[in-house]
């Protein structure tokens, strides 16, 4: 028993022959990948809002409607929403202790994430194709 305690693996995990690292690493890793991607993408987005977007609609549409903006904005939305869902998931798992509420909230942020990403990218496609 003293020897078994030296290992960080749980008794159950040892018996089942499973490692501690399955989907947990995927969550951790995707959070880092999206974080690294968001460093340049979010700075590009904020610079666009600060320098390009004005009350004048023509300038906004011109910037939003370029293929480069379509590509970068789509990547930004995907990385941003993926990162946000992963982060919110951990916050919900940490603070919500009722299983039913937790499940509902986790489903809600997943569906909201996919829905918002789809809506944002479709809007960008429409602006690029039809000029808003």
């Amino acid at each position: 028993m003293a020897n078994a305690r030296r290992s960080l693996r749980s008794e159950l995990g040892r018996v089942r022959g499973l490692g501690s690292a399955k989907e947990g690493v995927q969550h951790w890793w995707m959070q880092r990948i999206t974080a690294i991607a968001l460093v340049p993408l979010s700075l590009w987005f904020v610079a666009g809002i600060v320098f390009v977007i004005d009350v004048d609609r023509a300038t906004a549409i011109q910037w939003l409607g370029s293929p480069l903006t379509l590509g970068l904005m789509s990547l930004f939305l995907i990385a941003l929403i993926y990162h946000a869902v992963l982060g919110l998931q951990v916050v919900i798992e940490d603070y919500i202790h009722s299983h039913a509420t937790k499940l509902v909230l986790l489903l809600l942020i997943q569906f909201a994430g996919f829905g918002l990403a789809a809506a944002g990218i479709i809007a960008m496609l429409l602006i690029t194709i039809y000029g808003g």
Partner: peptide, 22 residues
Amino acid sequence: GGFLSVGILPLVYWLIAAASGP
């Protein structure tokens, strides 16, 4: 992080508004 996540809603609303017309 939580506050920024909420900001995704107005961001997507703004993009939809830009696509919807003047």
